[in-house]
């Protein structure tokens, strides 16, 4: 082993390689790695944000669902009430109508009865007069006794 000028040559080689590493190897690689680290950090942050957004959306959708349910329940109750009212109204209307029809029929029947009665009365008076006529054919003057007969007719 002998130390000689090779030493100087090796120092030059060493300096050249340090220079290459310092100038062309380490900075670009370091930059690539730092950029990648940044990208990964950004990606993780975005994922975190997405998760958070998802949670918010889930909460919002649950809220919306609950609200819709409440509203649907309200609507159903309202519809029930309305249906009951309609039925009630219809019942009332039917009752009124029935009464009206009943009354009309009653009035008609009464009229009928009245008419029948008055016709009957006429008939009875006629018959009575006819009977009396038959009995009293000879002595009774229809004209002379007309006043009495009509008074009798009234009393019937």
């Amino acid at each position: 082993m002998s130390i000689n000028a090779t030493l100087i040559g090796q120092m030059i080689w060493f300096a050249i390689f340090i220079w290459i590493t310092m100038k062309f190897i380490w900075p670009p690689l370091q930059k690539a790695m730092a950029d990648r680290q940044q990208q990964i950090a950004d990606g993780l942050a975005a994922a975190e944000r997405g998760k958070h957004d998802l949670e918010l959306a889930a909460k919002r959708s649950a809220d919306a669902l609950r609200e819709a349910k409440d509203r649907a329940a309200g609507i159903t109750a309202e519809a029930d009430k309305q249906a009951r009212r309609i039925v009630e109204d219809a019942k009332d209307a039917a009752k009124v109508e029935a009464e009206k029809v009943y009354n009309a029929k009653l009035a008609e029947l009464e009229q009928e009865a009245e008419r029948a009665r008055s016709a009957l009365r006429e008939r009875v008076a006629e018959l009575a007069v006819a009977g009396a006529e038959k009995i009293l054919r000879r002595e009774v003057n229809a004209a002379a006794h007309a006043d009495m007969l009509s008074a009798l007719k009234q009393e019937l």
Binding site: N4, A5, T6, G9, Q10, W13, I16, F17, I20, T21, F24, I25, W26, P27, P28, L29, K31, A32, M33, D35, R36, Q38, Q39
Partner: peptide
């Protein structure tokens, strides 16, 4: 001059460091 030392170390160094520089130059993030 020890030519073997100078040449072998220089060639190895050049091969390794120049390839490394090329790789670093093409490095993507």
């Amino acid at each position: 001059f020890h030519l073997d030392t100078l040449i072998v170390s220089g060639l190895i160094g050049l091969a390794v460091f120049v390839s490394l520089a090329v790789i670093a130059n093409r490095a993507t993030s």
